[in-house]
Write a protein that binds this DNA or RNA. Structure first.
Lengths: 192, 192
DNA sequence: TGAGTTATTGACCATATGGTTCCCTATATA
DNA sequence: TATATAGGGAACCATATGGTCAATAACTCA
């Protein structure tokens, strides 16, 4: 019987996710990860194989913890569509209100050189596409947009994803909270 | 009388700008710059002092070559406001149509760890703010928005900047051209 | 021609980087 | 108690990184 692992894989991945979120992939160095995860170099390699594999695992966890919950909100048939969309944008705005300017791991990654890697691009675009589809579901349940054709609804959903990404990046870039809020107000005023 | 420089500073900065645009700041290594600029290590340091100083110069050049021309388009009083905005978004979409997925140095930088550096953040937000103000000027000349209060117009302008940034990042992230086009069509259809 | 001044260059420098290795350790089982 | 197995950890490894340095070169001027 072998020696049991002293850390939980899932806990370690989440810690790594937070380090990558703060520093980006290129800016995150092994010492950053080791400190952030509280494990040694050999343990990291034994458990995850490489920095890149760990990054892919972190992106999947981000999906699970941040993207998929937004998708679920957008698809919740018990709430009016515009309220669902409003809630998701409020969720994106909220961190800026408390000084958290990390933006969104998905959007930061989309804007980085990492997105040139096929495996990363696949994950990034899968997440973006699922958000778009979920926006479309919410729009179908939004009175002002319920009469749209499928094609028009997808176009509007693409535009909402684009606005969501823009909001996240402008948050990361340091734009003033008031500017973010007023921009978002315009997004949401069109849903009513 | 001292030895004349063999390269033009402005030409070298532009070459560096293109390297940073492709690889981001963290992902760009000295050999990338040396190859892209066609000069030696010592020459680069003599002329620019450090990698970061060169990056700041590259950001300023990007402003001059890509941001300021957009601002000028948006402020051109001889063209209807909605056409001006449409032209700027078309300019952002165009590279994707030809396979150029670098996005926009400004937006990529906003989403990266570089934006945590005060000097970088200052330049990034100056550029974003100027675009917003220019969008506001164009909106004032757009029939559908000409009756807005100053405050409402600024909110709409903030939203246009947010959409512009989102478009650039989604381009970089690898989203399908059709999705980018349809999202942009929605943006522009609201101006008419 | 020599001097003064700055540019070019590539070797060098002191760390930093992602990954490897091997000794030691923790566990269950026979 | 010995064995098998996988985990922990820190030293090690082979390059890579941003920056430095000293020899050489390009120019004008006296």
């Amino acid at each position: 019987m072998s020696r049991p692992r002293e850390f939980e894989i899932d806990v370690a991945i989440e810690k790594a996710m937070n380090v990558f979120w703060t520093h980006g992939y290129d800016g995150t160095k092994l010492p950053d990860l080791l400190n952030g995860m509280g494990i040694a170099r050999g343990s990291l390699y034994k458990a995850f194989g490489s920095k890149k594999e760990l990054f892919l695992r972190a992106l999947d966890l981000y999906d699970h913890k941040h993207v998929q919950p937004a998708v679920i909100i957008l698809k919740d048939g018990n709430v009016p569509g515009d309220v669902r969309i409003s809630n998701v944008f409020a969720g994106a705005l909220k961190p800026a209100g408390t000084g958290d300017r990390r933006g969104c791991l998905l959007c930061n990654t989309a804007a980085s050189t990492s997105s040139e890697d096929p495996e990363v691009a696949l994950i990034v675009n899968n997440q973006l596409d699922r958000m778009t589809k979920a926006f479309a579901v919410a729009l179908a349940d939004t009175t002002a947009f319920s009469g749209l054709s499928e094609r028009e609804r997808m176009a509007e959903a693409n535009n909402l994803t684009l606005q969501y990404v823009g909001l996240r990046v402008m948050t990361r870039g340091g734009q003033e909270l008031k500017a973010l809020e007023s921009a978002t107000d315009q997004t949401l005023s069109r849903l009513r």
